[in-house]
């Protein structure tokens, strides 16, 4: 089912948590709401769930306007950040709890609970209390509890933040698999760009309550529309320089990086570390440090007065060279305006 937000705004006293958010979340996809802490992504999620009332704007599930509907009438499943499993109930009772509210008869409820438990792989844990489960298992129970009433939309609030690193990778795959199997629109919130990039079909990058960019993860990564998005995505982060365009050529200081069709102006140049390459015809840089980690090597050097990282294949440099000739892959230079918004240069 498609979720459509129109001009959604949420104001807490003085601060505007979400500012005029208009976006359509396609049906059956796994969508990641991504942004730094306090950018309003959780607020957006809770507004979709109905636990928070928007100050302005409408929320549509397909063509139904659900803005004024109570949470239980929207047909959503919500998984909380700390799972909110009832500590006094067993896993089975926890999963059955939503069904008891719907007054579904016990036999069918049990069948559905078993089906869900099999889906998330916790069937053998039915008689345990939440305190006897590991973080990952609790997470699965929470997902099963959210899914058991067959919601139209599944909402996950920071699903991986309470898990340790190894479990995080595992659960990531698990969430993706579960979403594929039940095939419902799933929206999850995260501040970890790697997490969002790895599992979502589509990501929505937000900052200070404002939508920045929406699209497939790889597309957003390759074509960030502003400086914030380019900086927020990618690890190691993008290198940025203050440079200028002169006669169709891009300069940082007096180093020429490439050509462009835009007019002469000052710009902020963003280059991802992996978009550098070793090139005999390129410019020469003095290597400050060189880290060789298996397949990739990180070169540290100073360009335009800024510390710069370049990620290059290990076999393209030999030994510990003092100077390296490098260049930038064509079409991989991102040019942003120097003003605060930092939009892409378009003229």
């Amino acid at each position: 089912m498609e979720v459509r937000l129109e001009g959604l705004t949420k104001q807490f006293d003085e601060t505007v948590a979400v500012d005029n958010l208009t976006v359509t979340l396609e049906s059956g996809k796994l969508i990641g709401l991504l942004g730094p802490s306090g950018c309003g992504k959780s607020t957006t999620l809770y507004m979709i769930s109905g636990l928070l009332k928007p100050t302005k704007g409408r929320i549509y599930f397909d063509d139904d306007d659900v803005t004024d509907l109570a949470p239980e009438k929207r047909g959503i499943g919500l998984v909380f950040q700390n799972y909110a499993l009832y500590p006094h109930m067993t896993v089975l009772q926890n999963i059955l709890f939503p069904l008891e509210n719907l007054r579904i008869n016990r036999k069918e409820a049990l069948a559905r609970a078993v089906e869900m438990a099999e889906l998330v792989g916790i069937k053998e844990l039915f008689d345990r209390k939440p305190s006897q489960l590991s973080g990952g298992q609790q997470q699965r129970v929470a997902i099963a509890r959210a899914l058991v009433k067959k919601p139209r939309v599944l909402l996950l609030d920071e699903p991986l933040s309470n898990l340790d690193a190894r479990l995080r990778l595992q659960t990531r795959e698990e969430i993706k698999r579960i979403q594929r199997e039940v095939c419902i629109t799933t929206i999850f919130v995260t501040h970890d760009q790697e997490e969002a990039m790895s599992i979502s079909d589509e990501i929505i990058v937000m900052n200070k309550g404002v939508l920045q960019q929406k699209g497939a993860p790889q597309h957003v990564y390759n074509h960030p529309i502003n400086l914030f998005v380019s900086k927020f995505l990618g690890n190691p982060p993008i290198n940025t320089f203050e440079g200028s365009i002169k006669n169709g050529k891009i300069y940082v200081g007096d180093v020429e990086l490439g050509v462009t069709k835009f007019k002469d102006q000052d710009v902020i140049i963003g280059i991802r570390p992996e978009d550098f390459r070793v090139d005999e015809n390129g410019f020469m840089v003095k290597v400050d440090e060189i880290d060789c980690i298996g397949r990739d090597t990180t070169l540290h050097f100073t360009l335009g007065g800024k510390h710069t990282r370049a990620l290059i294949p290990s076999d393209s440099v030999l030994g510990n060279p003092e100077y390296v000739h490098i260049s930038v892959k064509p079409d991989k230079i991102h040019l942003f305006n120097t003003d605060e918004a930092g939009e892409l240069v378009n003229e």
Binding site: G50, A84, F97, N101
Partner: peptide, 22 residues
């Protein structure tokens, strides 16, 4: 924890059941 009540609310639990079961 307030989240228990939020979770119950999402599941459409009545006030009396929230009181009795949570």
């Amino acid at each position: 924890d307030k989240q228990y009540y939020d979770a119950a609310k999402v599941d459409g639990t009545t006030r009396w059941r929230i009181f009795r079961r949570i």
